[in-house]
Design a protein around this nucleic acid. Structure first.
Lengths: 208, 208, 208, 208
DNA sequence: TATGAATGAGAATTCATTCAT
DNA sequence: CATGAATGAATTCTCATTCAT
């Protein structure tokens, strides 16, 4: 097995174990056992337990970063939003194991992790906030405290993601239709809250 | 120091350490050091680390349960909602340390904790969902998937809480005005999303 | 409760716990719980855990010492022997708890105990040996290595005692008849081994 | 040092410490200190203190089982008995440390040990009893309560063994002649008790 | 590169004993 | 005398990491 292949193999195995047992409950022994390598070999590829975990998270963060497209206000905004949300959901469902870790575990591990996750959150949140600011400036969205509202949106998305990867049946497949429906509900809630309106009607026209 | 006082003292110290270092990084030594008691004294009051943590959580959960009032659809719904949200925010801000633990830590610790928190979540979520179902039936709210929407609402609230107790300046005081504003924003978002409308106008009248 | 009464009460409780759980498995907590006294009170009456155990053993050793009568060769030897053995068996059966400790536990506790028990053993063994020496000198017993033979006799007795207090049904009563039978068997074996003869016939007459 | 060698080395060291300090007074620290290995290394080879002790005992029990040969009544019984007793004595003298543990310590440790030893005792005792029953049936031995008498015999043997490994000078060598003499005395006592007769004369001929 | 035996710091927990009330 | 809260030394066991082969 080539060096890079083995590295990837170990990463995969670690991901499985971490997702199943959690960071703290996972020992290096668990990982090397599953990967069928010697204890020492592990340390040839990764500095320590923290490092392999961090690398797994970095992978997911990077993928997430690539999936999220900046909104172009000139184009159909609703479609772009929809695509973004759907992309995120797809990514997480395709990486359940890692997502579980991201959502469930990578919190309170140590200051380094927390900071990294906080930064990721802040980055996305700022994108959302910028979009809101723009939408308001353009007269499409109602004026509001965009900082707080951005958090509300992220909280909604996070909660639905969490439901999908953690609470819903572990191995179950979530069909495209179901995903569509989830996106629909998420967006309807974000755009109109509990009151009426349908985002299908919107076409860069004022929402209020 | 009386027995019950000391017990409370240890609980407080533990709460501080847990909030600062996280459950796993906190050792019994950390707690006894901060509480300035001997190693063995700790075990006089609590069975083990898990037990003291559980007690702290139970305290918070109980308080939370008591704060959340069932909505009476006959009365002014908006005011009741507002009061509930404000109550929750007040509770968490008055128990920052514990809340930090609840939001940040009490996840993936062990099956027991996870289950307890999942149950708490489910209980509140079901209350929210029931309210939504009722609102829709009464023609006040637009029809939607109330399961998912309930999650969206909870996610929004959770995220704002998290902001308040974790990200915002640790020692800072959040004034009544600021709390009011947060509640306002949260409710505006939940009721109208990003579109127009003001919940102040509502008086059990249809939102759509 | 008077001082001496309480002391005795604690000793009894300790005896019960020691017999049931063994020396090492018994904690001072066990004793004070059963005796319904406070932890500190225990140390008013006994220096420490070792001390109360030693006192219990000393009691039994003393009783044992008093029970064993020196054989008078002028009188009916067989009857005296029989009385001695029966006396020992009665003592142990009347003090099952303590005996269990003596046989089962008071070994390897610490050098002090071991020495004390070794001395007790040696004292009794020497009495036996002296009797054998006398018997041989008088031509009643066959010549033999009386040191070793004395050990054989003691081993036989010890084994039967052990059977009675440890292996046989804990609470069961051993009737006088059964005790007689045991003594009979023990003496028959010691006097004639597996070969023929009946000690009833002997009357200070040569056995060979 | 090879893995198996180290394992054996640790077992030997543990055996020495156990024999010297007793099971309860021996800590894992004592063992690793004597074996000059690290704390963790111990747990690489043995699950815990109980496990290494049990292994030591099992070794001895197994050896003992192998040494004891069933008596064939067709052959010279006295010779076979003598060989058995001599074999047992040799085994114990060759494994003084372990024997000391077996005789002195392995009692009241925990239910598991006690049961194991009780079973060993019962097994041997039953062999003895069966031999006695057979001897009586064949008319070679006098009728007696073979259960009790079997215990007497075992007690005699145990006591002599105990003398050899515990009381007699620890490092001293017991010569073949001395061992022969011990066997002689033991058998003489068992066969003829304190009365006359010499087992040398017997040749499957009636003892009474 | 790969191995896996060895390490030892550190964690949780117990319990005999003390001492202030 | 009696109490029982407090102590802290001692013990067992784990596991991330190192290093000789």
């Amino acid at each position: 097995m080539k060096k890079e292949d083995r590295r990837i193999h170990v990463l995969e195995c670690a991901s499985e174990v971490f997702a199943k047992k959690g960071y703290h409950e996972t020992s290096v022994s668990d990982i090397v056992e599953r990967a069928r390598i010697a204890r020492g070999t592990f340390y040839l590829y990764f500095e320590n337990k923290r490092a392999i975990f961090e690398e797994l998270l970095d992978q997911l963060i990077e993928k997430l970063d690539r999936r999220i497209k900046r909104i172009n206000p000139e184009d159909d905004v609703a479609r772009q939003l929809k695509a973004n949300v759907r992309g995120i959901i797809d990514l997480f469902l395709d990486n359940r194991e890692l997502t579980k870790i991201l959502v469930h575990e990578a919190i309170g591990l140590d200051e380094g992790f927390d900071k990294k996750l906080a930064q990721l959150n802040a980055r996305i949140r700022n994108m959302v906030k910028a979009s809101l600011d723009l939408g308001i400036e353009m007269g499409i969205l109602r004026p509001c405290n965009t900082s707080i509202t951005a958090r509300c949106i992220m909280g909604s998305v996070r909660e639905v993601i969490n439901y999908l990867v953690v609470e819903a049946e572990p191995g179950s497949h979530v069909s495209g239709k179901e995903r569509d429906s989830l996106v629909e509900q998420l967006m309807a809630f974000s755009l109109f809250g509990l009151s009426g309106g349908s985002y299908n009607e919107l076409n860069n026209k004022p929402l209020w």
